[in-house]
Design a binder for these strands. Structure first.
Lengths: 165, 165
DNA sequence: GTTATTGCAAATGATTTGCACAAGG
DNA sequence: CCTTGTGCAAATCATTTGCAATAAC
């Protein structure tokens, strides 16, 4: 886990007059020891498989805390549940590409896109503070050769598949 | 209401072997006679104020139908409820800018942005089929002069305000 | 007639909350 | 101690669904 997370979280906790608890630590660890996106309940499952104990309510509450602290971002994957992304600390301005065949999510950064969006906002008389770009796309592999390797991988791993199509 | 809607909806209904009903007509009319975004329950309220009658369930079912037909788009405004946008027929590739002060949503099109996103997808080995760009921003007016006209307007109209900030 | 559609009320499922108890600082 | 945090179970709230009645075509 990036030590930046620990530092920034400590700062947030201090400032707000909050406390350190083993449950919170375990949840934060579970989130930031991976770069995977997750829903609240997926995280709760992940926690249960460790030796540490936390109630579902605490998981929800900690997620809210981290979002408020700006360490975790809520993203829209077209899912019904809220999805969270722990990678905004390392890549503060990344975008998402979602494969409509297998649901795989690819993160990428692009300064030109960011800049162009910034300009668009300015032209409308605003100052952009946050951009969220999601591109839904199909892999050329599937279109050209009738197979999406990600799709097979996703099936094996039992991942949530997209509802579209 | 754009006659394109009626035509495309008829086509969809025919193809799928569905039927025309006064409830459906009234809901479709309520949606496309305005360019406002709405949640399912806001729409249900709108319908209730007319002489036509529809149950809440039918409103939900009709919305799903229109989304499936591609006539209505589900968009993410960072809200907890799903928000729908009826303007994708007139502007098939528009983006959203949300004022973080008043929650006002501004729609805009930008071919350069669309093109750049397309390229980004291609570079990753994909073919983009849908782009969703949301820019959260604050108005310069508020930042420079301490007042956001949209905010006042929003308060008067009793609009849902953003949760952020 | 046959099949899709409706309305109602009940079910669902994710998220939140009230409250009594536990435990940081 | 004093206050925040936790766990549990109950509550909430948007959305979905089963079913009997209704209405397209």
């Amino acid at each position: 886990m990036d030590s930046t997370v620990a530092t920034r979280l400590q700062q947030f906790i201090q400032t707000k007059g909050l406390r350190n608890t083993p449950q919170r630590d375990a949840i934060v660890e579970a989130i930031f020891s991976s770069d995977e996106h997750f829903t609240a309940d997926e995280l709760w499952d992940r926690i249960r498989k460790t030796q540490s104990k936390s109630s579902r309510a605490t998981v929800y509450r900690t997620i809210s805390l981290l979002v408020e602290a700006g360490l975790l971002h809520e993203i829209d994957l077209g899912d019904d549940q809220k999805t969270y992304d722990p990678n905004f600390i390392d890549s503060p301005a990344h975008n998402h590409l979602v494969c409509i065949d297998c649901g795989k999510v690819i993160e990428f950064e692009d300064d030109n896109i960011r800049l162009l969006n910034d300009c668009a906002a300015r032209r409308l008389g605003f100052r952009a503070s946050k951009q969220s770009l999601k591109i839904e796309a199909c892999c050329e592999a599937l279109r050209l050769h009738g197979r999406c390797d990600n799709l097979i991988e996703a099936r094996i791993q039992g991942k949530r598949l997209p509802k579209h199509r």
